[in-house]
């Protein structure tokens, strides 16, 4: 059994590095256990580079999978491969693996790399194992990535979809509140992503709010932008958020008034804005009362007798027809 310790939850480079060596050594997927040194996401300064205290911690992905493609080959110890004597060592730190001098014959289709970049952000601990398992199979099954109906490939697609949706919903549902910090307006938000997407989403918020100072906190990780530098922070608490913001009052008014009570489509709303997001959306508090009043408001509109206009109406006269709106007369 080999154990790979990855630097952090989304350590794509570490995973790639280890996976290449393992494939070259023909280590079967069920022979590898994947662990994360720190439960935190990348970029947090401090103990991220420390060695793990407990190597049998819950970060290791479980190997209790039904595995059908057993290679049935003798596994060569990594350390031996690098010319050391400690053949029994079963722990791999990606940074300890020397780059191979051998010609590289890995089969790594572009579609796999594309999927892997988002799959690695998924919260499921078995993602490292699953990616390695597909990479392993790719060495033998050439067209595998093109089979969207294959169980493993379908799983990767489903995980990618879930990650992309989480990222999309974070772009949509982060709500900033304005606070004055050190004499400057700073925009603060609290969001609870489902997957490890904080670092991946940062470029979006930087690109959009480049000239603003902002902070987005989540239970596991935060990020701070000061107009120049992005800094990752340890996880935070919701209580740190300012309680109020004057523009939020206007936003709530807008939400209430852009709603058409004559067309309730609650399923359509909840499909795109599931209840799990509601507790961080200020406008969601209004939903119940808006639904409750909708029927009466619609009835009132229908039953109201038409009224004559209360103002004097001056008839509108259209101006002369413009010959050609584009100004050209060719």
């Amino acid at each position: 059994m080999h154990t790979v310790y990855l630097e952090h939850e989304t350590d794509m480079e570490g995973w790639r590095y280890a996976a290449r060596q393992l494939i070259r050594l023909e280590v079967a997927p069920q022979e590898v256990s994947w662990c994360v040194k720190s439960a935190r996401e990348p970029g947090i300064q401090g103990d991220i580079f420390a060695m793990p205290d407990s190597r049998s911690g819950s970060d290791c992905s479980s190997q209790e999978w039904a595995i059908s493609n057993h290679a049935g080959r003798e596994v060569v110890g990594i350390s031996q491969y690098h010319g050391k004597t400690d053949v029994t060592s079963s722990t791999i730190f990606p940074e300890q693996l020397a780059p191979s001098t051998h010609a590289d014959h890995l089969m790594v289709p572009r579609q796999f790399i594309e999927l892997a970049r988002s799959v690695i952000l998924h919260q499921a601990p078995e993602r490292f194992y699953l990616l390695y398992r597909v990479l392993w199979r790719l060495q033998r099954e050439r067209g595998l990535m093109r089979l969207a109906g294959d169980a493993d490939v379908a799983r990767l697609h489903a995980m990618t979809k879930s990650v992309r949706r989480d990222m999309h919903k974070m772009k949509a549902f982060v709500r900033f509140r304005e606070a004055i910090v050190a004499g400057q307006p700073r925009y603060l938000a609290w969001f609870e992503p489902e997957h490890h997407i904080m670092a991946a989403i940062a470029p979006f918020f930087i690109g959009r709010f480049a000239t603003m100072d902002w902070t987005i906190m989540s239970p596991n990780m935060g990020m701070n932008w000061d107009g120049d530098v992005l800094q990752f922070l340890p996880g935070g608490k919701l209580e740190a958020l300012p309680a109020e913001d004057d523009s939020e009052v206007l936003w709530l008014s807008y939400y209430r008034h852009i709603f058409n009570p004559a067309r309730l489509k609650l399923k359509a709303m909840q499909k795109e804005m599931p209840k799990k997001y509601w507790h961080n959306l200020p406008e969601a508090e209004l939903i119940d009362s808006m639904i409750a009043e909708a029927g009466t408001r619609t009835q009132a509109m229908l039953q109201r007798a038409p009224e004559l206009p209360r103002r004097k109406i001056i008839g509108y006269k259209r101006g002369p027809q413009r010959p050609d709106i584009t100004g050209g007369n060719e």
Partner: peptide
């Protein structure tokens, strides 16, 4: 879409 109203 930053939000959805109960009209879907």
């Amino acid at each position: 879409c930053h939000s959805y109203a109960p009209d879907g």
